[in-house]
Nucleic acid binder design. Structure first.
Lengths: 359, 359
DNA sequence: GTGAAAGCGCTAACAG
DNA sequence: CTGTTAGCGCTTTCAC
């Protein structure tokens, strides 16, 4: 392949505008110390020649690379892509993150990294060395991986930890998992439910714990018991089936269930159907994440939306700010989740409803 | 932000191994003219120091950037991401393309470009100037956009046109739309269907035409009439509703329908339900693309899978080969699609079946 | 086969 | 405010 060179460089612009390279550079980087008239003149040449700075050259000379790495868990991401069940985490990251990047002349590069492997360090370091990104966005379960976090801190590279609340190095951005779990639980309580089951997610993810905590808190504040109402899952469909069975097959079953993700909610729906329980008449159901599949179930699921796009967008903003030298936010950044009401929730049958209405 | 420099550079490796920069460079690029022993010695230092070449520096000195651009239509892509209906085109591109890139030390960057706008050229040129990618993957409808194609050809940059069959500049890779439409139609004919309706896609996409052609060809080879059996859609749900209505509401309606994408198939399913037609008993249905939603409909849809991951992977291979100087394939590269059978197809009721069985 | 020199496009540091 | 100088890390000549 022929060796391609930059078609039009800063030199051409400088020559065309009759100024030094430096002045052009200053205009490009929007530095204050340039006269308006100069600025205009240079900008005219830039537009005329269609000049665009080479990020490789910019990076070389020690400034920004205009690259932000979005680091996702390799196994889970690939599994999701292959399963084709509609999990659109990466798309939502791109939607929020890439578009925000574009606004500022940055690009987002998706990078897959094994959380588990003993060569996490090597993988990450290699990506950093190769790309020299201006910032890194960590997603669960990386966000609270001590090894990764300390490595990044040592590299002195701005990074955001999505879905984290730990005040470790890097900027944590929470998606308010506990709050939204509480909100969902309260919603069911307000409908008159007293026995509300909860299916938890993989303990590898801290957000699993927070979601359980939110449910627990809401139940407690309403003075409701939770014995036998918590079932363990791991986000997989199979684990959801098992958990739903455990919750629904016995006596004194819950009148409502919250599942920690959509796959497990789907599983619960199937188990309910098999048990001849009609949703929402016999069983109300709320799921977490609000991935595309919630539209297609019968009935469509009321779900807590995981605000990934918004969070990714926020993460990019925080990184660009950090890059500019701004201090990170003092308080935890929280992007709040909202619950999308569909058709899987109703008041419970029978007396419970009345009790609640009186209360 | 502190100015970050490459932690370990080629210099460190050279010093450690006691050789010149040049030799290290040769080892990195796997050039033949290095003695085995030297190579081993240098490699040992590389491993020891954890050296990874800086892509920016490599790019600067005129060699590869190890970056491949995957160019998608901005409006459509963003609309899909926002709609959250499970369209996973980008994911599948990443699955196939990014993983193949990783095998060769490349990265894939997703880029969104407006097909329509008058500044397509500027957008693309800007991306090329900024990133200096080693290759570009064009997706429909860009793949047959003459403006884009000639621009890229002029840039002397290897590019693949996915979903194209035109022998224009760049390397076309077909997903065999006509062939798979023919296959789907034949499948229905083999089940005994004689009146097979077809809902076409947006004419902005050439593949829409090919899919129609495949259906037409299969109908013709079976000696079946197609009058009143073709309805125009544009890939949207709404257009699918309209087309399905047109096909199903009149007299002498088809016993089977092929929709040019999943959204329109979904719409057809709803229209059929409204018309009290049971799928597949009263109406067989085959859709195109096989996006996640096909799992979740009632019944799950038999669908022609669009082999995006495989195609993206192939595209990356072709670009890397071109980059190395290999000649592009002489013949059109075809990644064949397969039909995934689910539960939306059955033999038609009544006489038609018998006729077909006799034939 | 290996090494030394030059330069890719840009910016940081310093002059003026 | 603007221009000059010196690299950034690497690969390409070209010598040896």
């Amino acid at each position: 392949m022929a060796r391609r060179r930059q078609a039009v460089t800063i030199k051409h612009v400088a020559a065309d505008a009759g100024v030094s390279l430096q002045t052009v550079s200053r205009v490009i980087n929007n530095e204050p110390s340039v006269r308006e008239e100069m600025k205009r003149r240079v900008q005219a040449s830039i537009d005329k020649l269609g000049y665009v700075p080479s990020i490789a050259a910019q990076r070389m000379s020690g400034s920004r690379s205009y690259l932000i790495l979005a680091v996702n868990d390799r196994d889970r991401t690939i599994a999701d892509w292959q399963a084709r069940q509609g999990t659109d985490w990466v798309d939502q990251m791109l939607l929020g993150g890439m578009l925000k990047c574009a606004e500022h002349g940055y690009r987002m590069i998706v990078e897959l990294v094994d959380t588990h492997s003993d060569h996490v360090e090597r993988e990450l370091l290699a990506a950093i060395a190769a790309l020299q990104p201006d910032g890194i966005i960590l997603t669960p379960p990386h966000s609270d991986n001590a090894q990764i976090v300390s490595l990044l801190a040592a590299q002195n590279i701005p990074f955001v930890r999505i879905g984290s609340e730990e005040m470790a190095p890097g900027i944590p951005v929470s998606m308010d998992d506990e709050g939204s779990a509480r909100q969902a639980t309260r919603h069911l309580i307000a409908q008159g439910h007293c026995r509300i089951g909860f299916i938890s997610g993989s303990t590898e993810y801290n957000l699993s714990t927070w979601r359980v905590d939110g449910w627990r808190a809401a139940m407690a504040e309403a003075g409701l018991a939770i014995d036998g109402l918590l079932a363990d899952g791991d986000f997989s469909y199979a684990s959801g089936q098992k958990a739903a069975h455990q919750l629904l097959a016995g006596p004194n079953r819950p009148t409502a269930i919250i599942a920690s993700n959509d796959q497990m909610a789907l599983a619960t729906l199937e188990v309910a159907r098999a048990l001849r329980l009609v949703v929402p008449e016999d069983l109300s159901l709320i799921s977490f994440d609000n991935t595309p599949l919630v539209h297609f179930t019968r009935p469509p699921l009321t779900a807590v939306d995981q605000p990934i796009a918004m969070t990714a967008s926020k993460a990019v903003e925080l990184i660009i700010a950090a890059q500019k030298g701004d201090a990170p936010p003092a308080a935890l950044t929280v992007v709040s989740a909202t619950m999308i009401e569909r058709e899987s929730v109703a008041a419970p049958k029978g007396g419970e409803k009345i009790v609640a209405m009186r209360g």
